[in-house]
Design a protein around this nucleic acid. Sequence first.
DNA 1: GACCAACGTTGGTTGCACCAACATAGCCAT
DNA 2: ATGGCTATGTTGGTGCAACCAACGTTGGTC
Lengths: 153, 153
Amino acid sequence: MSTPADDRAPERLRTTPSWLLTRLADHAAHLAREAFTAAGAGRYHYALLVALVEGGPASQAALGRRCGIDRSDVVAALNELVARGHAERRPDPADRRRNVVTVTPAGREQAERTGKALDEVQERLLAPLDPEDRRRFTELLTHLLRHHAPGRF
Amino acid sequence: MSTPADDRAPERLRTTPSWLLTRLADHAAHLAREAFTAAGAGRYHYALLVALVEGGPASQAALGRRCGIDRSDVVAALNELVARGHAERRPDPADRRRNVVTVTPAGREQAERTGKALDEVQERLLAPLDPEDRRRFTELLTHLLRHHAPGRF
DNA sequence: GACCAACGTTGGTTGCACCAACATAGCCAT
DNA sequence: ATGGCTATGTTGGTGCAACCAACGTTGGTC
């Protein structure tokens, strides 16, 4: 038979930060994906759009570096963005190795819409935390990331 | 040309907790996988072993619930554990739907060894945090998880 | 005895991260 | 200037973790 406590995770796992982290991130990703797929996109698409809106036109390699996405994955996501009319890709006249990628108005709109949906996700994710703890949590995450990926954060 | 700041993530992403969380978890998973593969195992294998060591013999379904692993994935991981002599699986005489899974001495040893390697990973992961912040970080993660998966934590 | 729920198992799908290789094009030293 | 190194976009493929659907078997329940 299965008591409710049957579902309880082993102490050894419950006290391992990396395990908690992975578990929570999985849950967060699940929430975020709801928002993304509702907007007809994926994480990559949103990241790329945001990078373009914020930093202006850029090459695919630069976009990949900024968002932490592999060059090859940028290609695929960008293909879909272009197909949906959210971005444009044309060769860079100044450096014929590169493409210049730009956001379209529709892309900006999409980024903003998805951003709002994502804000609601944050709200749901951090629901049990008071403002002070939310700030601390974000701060700790940033601190850790800055240590492990210096220059990127 | 590409300045160093070229690699910097967009502000909109850097201030989104779920994004930071996913990013950091990815890094943590990377570190953890080093430790796991060095021990010749995967995350699932370790979780299952720990659950067995801590909670004693159990059915596959119960193990899956405790570790947050799908029934079908438990089967695969368990096959490998059995093949390596780290666990044993035999039909439950009391309920012929179930299997009773037990750890072998080799399995306990493996769990302990992997656990030590995983401890070093935590050390590396939380390196930039002082003890107080480490405690707070773990506490926040636990708090959030308890909210989103009540009963499991 | 009939129905529904749980179990183990098979097989397949998805998203994300990553790597190798290639052709083209720019850069820089000698 | 030329030769060698690096960057870029692209293709194709790998691995892992999470998940879902279906099936046959078995237990429990009404």
